[in-house]
Design a protein around this nucleic acid. Structure first.
Length: 516
RNA sequence: GGGCCUGUAGCUCAGCUAGGCAGAGCAUCUGGCUUUUAACCAGGUGGCCAAGGGUUCGAAUCCCUUCAGGCCCGCCA
């Protein structure tokens, strides 16, 4: 059974209505780990629905969280906003209403791209519309109990006047610099590092925020969350998960949600990703280079608890190939590999939209990677594919759209991540390179015999070989001449296949020029 | 110190959440194509499933112990 089905089956009988939550703070560019959390939740959600359970998928954007520091991608002027809620500080690009919106909208776009549509909640709105009011009052009533739980479970000590509420300073708008002096319902007297001291009425909305370890359990209660996965860092002993479980049960009288813990995604050759160390791959890059169904496939075929190594180099090609192969096996076009478990569930969960009813038209991604570098527009590329018989005369619009998207991904990959070895540029004019006499001779021969063959990969390949042999030249040298004339380099994609993708008369003309 | 994950062919890994013949890809070897763009096709070699113990008719799979490696433990996925 697929892991999502196992989790869903365990979860199903525990509630009549399930709320599956994912909570990601839009404090910076989303990265691929965020995608794992979302997709893990989505998989369990889909499985519950499939099993006939009543379930809903929500995303809580903690946009009331404070800015922790001036991240490397921010201007230095953001120093003044550190400590303030990210929904109340300016947008870095000035196009959105707030800093939080800037990253939140990008994230939501990415979610749409991979076929995930949760109901979105914003912490800032919940704090400002009173959703949290009761939770705040309850927490403050139980200050000593909460303090005891946190100190005992997490083994850290809290200050003497600690309250489970961070007051937002009226003067400087920061959540992190206020110190409570006295709490007497409904007022908290506080002083702030900015020099201001004041009185905060907790009955008013948006005057402060529960600290993370209390905010999380309060959220479970408020939104009736029954399932929420989290990263391994939060699963550690004494972590927020452990204190949260006890707080939600003892203080908020609500059962802690079920969960699964997921591992990090490592970048091949670089290990764990850290935004601060510049080893992170943004979700945007990942989505631009990887077709959405392939990205989902990567997550679905791995148990959440296993780490995933993502290789943005050649590994991406293998991954896409593997997906295509799984797709062929799913539709019975290829024999299933023994040991490939849960193929059907994995394939179905990998679909961002509806599950295809027949095999989508496939073109190997590797071929696309070559063709994309020859044609400039989609029309060019389509014509090449038609000419070489890689596209049937009639192709459904759906298949065409699918291929076109694959092409976009291939292009992005080529421009940003592909190893040099697979990149090339067809030179518009004859490269200014010297050709040896024997190279000229080979090119001359090819040019003059080329119109005697039909322009297919195999014929071209054979032609080059026979000409090289006639001139007792090593095939390798013949190939080098070809690449020099077309690409201005000594190497290139497989010659027969490559030249067959180019226009025959163009090749003849170029070879004639080079040999004259 | 605590927690989690991993250990299966030379390499990268499936298979472990239904206990029932040990599986792929790459590499290697053989044969084929005058064939290079990570070449391709057909076939073969290759494993005490980290070690030890337990449960079982039967264990890579479940349980216990040990060893080795990785990651996490202010915030972070």
């Amino acid at each position: 059974m697929h892991w999502a089905d196992v989790l869903a089956k365990k979860l199903a009988p525990k509630a009549d209505h399930h709320v599956l939550a994912t909570g990601i703070t839009p404090s910076g560019p989303i990265h691929i780990g965020n995608m794992r959390e979302v997709l893990t939740t989505d998989a369990v959600y889909r499985s519950l629905i499939k099993q006939g359970a009543d379930a809903e998928f929500i995303y809580i954007a903690d946009d009331y969280d404070h800015l922790r520091k001036v991240y490397p991608y921010l201007p230095k002027t953001y120093e003044q906003y550190v400590g303030q809620p990210i929904s109340e500080i300016p947008c870095p690009c000035e196009k959105h209403d707030s800093y939080a919106d800037h990253y939140l909208f990008a994230f939501l776009d990415s979610l749409e791209e991979i076929g995930v549509e949760p109901r979105v909640y914003r912490a800032s709105e919940m704090y400002k519309t009173g959703v949290y009011r009761l939770a705040i009052e309850t927490a403050l009533e139980h200050t000593e109990d909460i303090k005891e739980i946190i100190e005992r479970v997490s083994k850290r000590s809290l200050p003497k006047h600690w309250l489970p509420f961070n007051v937002k300073c009226e003067q400087c708008n920061r959540l992190t610099t206020t110190k409570p002096e006295l709490y007497e319902y409904p007022f908290i007297e506080y002083s702030c590092e900015c020099g201001h001291s004041g009185k905060c009425d907790i009955r008013k909305d948006g005057v402060g925020k529960l600290p993370w370890r209390v905010d999380w359990p309060a959220r479970w209660k408020n939104l009736k969350v029954t399932f929420e996965p989290f990263g391994k860092d939060l699963g550690t002993t004494g972590g927020a998960r452990e204190t949260g479980e006890e707080i939600v049960e003892k203080i908020y009288d609500y059962s802690a949600p079920e969960f699964t813990m997921y591992e990090f995604i490592l970048l091949k050759g670089k290990g764990a990703m850290h935004s601060s160390k510049g080893t992170a791959l943004s979700a945007n890059d990942m989505l631009q280079m990887t077709p959405p169904e392939v990205l989902r496939f990567l997550m679905m075929k791995n148990q959440p608890a296993k780490h995933i190594t993502f290789d943005p180099g050649f590994g991406l090609l293998n991954l896409v190939d593997e997906y295509d192969q799984a797709e062929r096996m799913y539709f019975g076009e290829e024999e299933r590999i023994k040991g490939w478990k849960d193929l059907d569930a994995i394939y179905e969960l990998s679909q961002p939209g509806t599950i295809p009813t027949s095999l989508p038209y496939q073109i190997p991604f590797r071929h696309l990677v070559t063709v994309v570098q020859i044609g400039e527009s989609w029309e060019d590329i389509k014509n090449i594919l038609y000419r070489t018989g890689q596209l049937p005369d009639t192709i459904s619009t759906k298949d065409e759209k699918h291929l076109q998207k694959r092409k976009d991904h291939a292009e992005y990959w080529l421009n940003h991540f592909a190893p040099k070895a697979v990149r090339f540029t067809v030179q518009k004019k004859l490269p200014k390179i010297d050709f040896s006499d024997e190279e000229k001779k080979v090119l001359q021969e090819i040019a003059s015999s080329a119109d005697t063959i039909s322009w297919t990969a195999e014929n071209i390949h054979n032609l080059i070989y026979s000409i090289a042999e006639n001139q007792s030249l090593s095939p390798k040298k013949a190939f080098t001449a070809v690449y020099k004339a077309i690409l201005g380099e000594k190497r290139g994609p497989r010659a027969g296949f490559f030249l067959s993708n180019l226009d025959q008369s163009f090749v003849i003309k170029r070879f004639s020029e080079a040999s004259s």
